[in-house]
Amino acid sequence: MSWTVIQQSLPIFEKAFWLTLKLSCYGIIGASLLGLFASFIRYFQIPVAKQLVNIYIELSRNTPLLIQLFFIYYAFPEIGLKIPAQTSGIIGLVFLGGSYMAEAFSGGLDGVPKVQIESGKAIGLSNLQLARYVIFPQGLALSVPAIAANVIFLIKETSIFTVIAIPGLTNTALDQIGMYYHTDESLFVLVIGYAIILIPLSLILTWLERRARYGTFGH
């Protein structure tokens, strides 16, 4: 392991780091919105849409991201839909993450105690008020731990982006290994790169979980 090699390759890795972070952010935000939308459809039992959401969730959860990406990036152009690599990556991440987020939100909404809903009805809240003031605030707080786990999971999944040649952290490391045989150095920077994102994030999320749990008990 040579520090000069690491220093020399740092600028390239820095670019890759920001790209990985950017794509993760887009993917996570997109997945959360899709998941929230899907969980509302499930919660309000909207006919037809509910079945579509269930089919989507099963397809997305029971297939690997790698094959989803291959399908988006290599198979879609054959039916006339050409999507650039980075956009394909974000779409793949949103497609995968949307179902995990939907399950997280649904789990939270289902976890709101029956007595809360009945009390809301007893004091004469309308369905909309019940959702706005009773179910969603508590449900969202309950789903925080599952969402936090999903955020970490989705960031780790960005390492698969290398298969469609998105120059993120993994792809850059593989490039460095392929071109200069800097195996140890590149893998070291790769692990550190992900650690820099994931360790502080997991600490923040743990803190947030504690705050959210505090919120659920009505303090």
Partner: peptide
């Protein structure tokens, strides 16, 4: 948990033989 599985595979695949 922290290291993505892809990276784990590469770590073992490259480092075991080399080092």
């Amino acid at each position: 948990r922290i290291v993505p599985t892809v990276v784990l595979l590469f770590l073992f695949y490259y480092i075991l033989p080399q080092n």
